[in-house]
Simulated scan of single mutants.
Amino acid sequence: MSRAKASNAPSENDIIPLAVARSPLGDEYQAQALSLELSLPYLGVVRPKDVRHANALLFLDENGLGLQVAGKGAPGPVRAEFVTGKMGYRREHGGGAGQLVARAVGLQKTKAGLHVVDATAGLGQDAFVLASLGCRVSLFERNPVVHALLADGLARAALNVDCAPFIARMTLQAGSSIDWLTNAAEESEAADVVYLDPMFPHRDKSALVKKEMQVFRTIVGDDDDSEALLTAALAAAKYRVAVKRPRKAPAINGPEPGTRIEGKSSRYDIYPIRALPLR
């Protein structure tokens, strides 16, 4: 740990919600840059299971940046991962344009290369699927911690020969998606499709997420401006707005969806504006 940052580390009597740290193989320059950018304490080289004075860590190791719960017995890190794991399997064995998110955007109805604005990108999984199917995707993620995770995941995937062509169609934007959508509508620079997947409150035990995602929800919180986001999306989208929701959850307050596509645990509310081009 550098001496410049050691003085900013919390004392052992302080419990902080989130800090930056790294393994011996984690990039120190990146760690210190994150600490400064996000105004978070930098703990230097640590083992997450040994940390007692932080609840969670933005932790850099040889696998990149992850959001890691501290302490013994904590679940594994949450990363934006496109090369391996679930997204790697999905890239190789996915269902093409028949996947629910692809149907929601309308890829079964058009061969045109659509510009999709993912206004609530999160860890970028749906955006990556759409990019792998030929869409040009602009991603917005307003939470600075999640934005950092997503930027790291995209950078790592860009170095992979199989993922690089898809990553080239994905652009991570800074700032508020509501502001961008509002300006796009005013300047007639509409996106073809706007995709929304707002965080929603979990109200019953059946909806609880996996343990490793609970810290993610704690950092991100719920999107309490979903109505404003939907309004801005409808004003900016050229062809449709697609909103991902829990299967039994109510629609976002506002106009009724024109149609719905249901899966096992989630559904997509579709707000059509005009017919998609055939090609």
Rank of each mutant, 00 (worst) to 15 (best):
Y42N: 12
V241P: 08
K5V: 00
P48W: 03
N183L: 13
D61N: 13
A131Y: 10
P255G: 05
A232W: 02
G66L: 07
F166H: 15
N8S: 14
K205L: 03
K49Q: 08
S132N: 13
R142P: 02
S39Y: 03
L149F: 03
E141R: 04
R267N: 04
L139M: 15
V101E: 04
A155M: 08
K248W: 10
R52T: 15
D152V: 10
S39V: 10
D126S: 14
A131K: 08
S206K: 13
L172A: 06
L38M: 03
L123W: 14
D192G: 00
I178W: 03
A191Y: 11
R136H: 11
G94A: 03
P144T: 06
L159F: 01
Q68P: 01
P272I: 02
G153E: 02
Y271N: 05
G88V: 09
Q108C: 01
R169K: 14
P17T: 05
E212Y: 09
A157S: 04
N160R: 00
G258Y: 04
Q30K: 14
A168M: 07
V116K: 07
G175R: 07
N63S: 10
C135S: 04
D192W: 11
K49W: 04
G113K: 15
R169V: 01
A207D: 13
F128T: 12
M199H: 07
R47G: 02
G85R: 06
T259K: 10
S176K: 03
K244S: 09
L43K: 11
A121L: 11
V45P: 00
G88E: 07
G26P: 02
P48K: 04
A104S: 13
D204K: 12
P77G: 06
T171A: 09
S265N: 15
L159H: 12
G76A: 06
R91T: 07
D224K: 13
C135D: 03
Q99K: 08
E92S: 13
A104R: 12
L172I: 11
C135V: 08
P250D: 15
Y271H: 10
I273A: 00
P277T: 07
R217V: 01
F200A: 07
S266E: 13
Q32Y: 06
E186H: 15
A102D: 01
F166T: 09
M170C: 10
T218G: 08
A184W: 07
D162G: 01
V209C: 12
Y195L: 15
A131R: 11
G71A: 04
Q30E: 09
K210I: 01
R240E: 06
S35L: 05
A151D: 08
T231Y: 07
A97G: 01
P77E: 02
K264T: 10
L181M: 15
P41E: 08
R79W: 01
E256C: 03
